[in-house]
Amino acid sequence: MQISLKINGKTHSHDVEPRISLAQYLRETLSLTGTHIGCDTSGCGACTVHVDGAATKACTLLAVQVDGCEIKTIEGMANGNEMHPIQEAFKENHGLQCGFCTPGMVMTAADILKNNPNPTEEEIRHGLEGNFCRCTGYHNIVKSIQHAAETLNS
């Protein structure tokens, strides 16, 4: 089936099989491998991207479902060589170790901060319910998001 969607500002058109997930389409057809597939069963959040501005698990979404939508992936967060303030905050606050969960964490963090620019620590932790990290113990991820909020609000 023919689909056409805008990904990180650029329009892409492809003929895709209906059963291909958005996550697979991004990784395998477009080589946008920043979107990770951890569980492929909607549990871990590593595949989180924005669909029309809302954080969504791309492993549980068919590419055909988002025909005509605007998608943002981790590759679309930086502005050229300048990291997005959330990415910068993860780097500064040691918000990642192996980095596998990080693209999903950053995309979810962006959704949290868009809807709630001044979240409490508890609100951040609740906001991350759909994102697993096997390394950090979450503390530095929460700290990173708190620092990103400060930068974005300043």
Partner: peptide
């Protein structure tokens, strides 16, 4: 229900 991503969809 679920988490942010599930609620969005």
């Amino acid at each position: 229900i679920g988490d942010i991503q599930v609620r969005n969809r």
